[in-house]
Nucleic acid binder design. Structure first.
Lengths: 102, 102
DNA sequence: ACTATATATGAACAGTTGTTCATATGAAAG
DNA sequence: CTTTCATATGAACAACTGTTCATATATAGT
């Protein structure tokens, strides 16, 4: 038995944060965007074409992911290049992928 | 560079499953239930009291988690004892916890 | 300054979700 | 077999979410 095994509930605030984090992954469009960005950083239009979805829809969802700090962006001329905020994001995707493939 | 690094989008169906999986974790009540069950298996009334929520609400959410195969149950007299389906579930919780604590 | 291109944003709307309330089911005890 | 306790379920409703459409902002090129 591991010493650090959990035997108590986490704090309400932490549970809130966990649920909020997972909400970002609870929609196909956002998961697609995140997967796309694991392949390569991309501008809004690239994402829009690659995922065959309206620019507006992509843009709205990018805002959600941005606010959750799962992605970051950098302006380049007329474009805005989005990329994953860190490796943790891919880890979360991979973990889910493993789960559904078991 | 890792050999198995992803350079393609997963299939639409797999993305759907990933999003569906994460939906289960995208609600505080369900996350609370799952955390509670990492501590110990429990009947509906235990959960209801522990989380200070109505029996009906807990029962509805247990159904969702059951359908997602994240929990299993076993009847014991008048009670129904719920427990986590497998270790993977705790892993998914832990991963999120790490993320919010970084 | 004007035009074209890229992105962001707000309102509106439909679809989904989580809770409550009332009630049903089911099992055990008397 | 009736009562009690534990759980499940359905309808109703409010809140939330994701898309579309229209429009705003911003940058680059002419």
């Amino acid at each position: 038995m591991l010493v650090d095994e959990m035997k108590e509930m986490p704090l309400e605030d932490d549970i809130y944060l966990v649920a909020e984090l997972y909400k970002n992954f609870a929609d196909m469009t956002r998961v697609k965007i995140l997967y796309a960005l694991t392949i390569s950083e991309m501008c809004v239009n690239d994402l829009s074409e690659m995922l065959e979805m309206s620019q507006s829809s992509i843009s709205h969802q990018l805002r959600v992911l941005k606010q959750a700090r799962l992605i970051k962006y950098q302006k380049k001329g007329k474009n805005v290049i989005y990329s994953l905020a860190d490796d943790h994001v891919k880890l979360l995707l991979d973990q889910a992928y493993e789960h559904i493939k078991e």
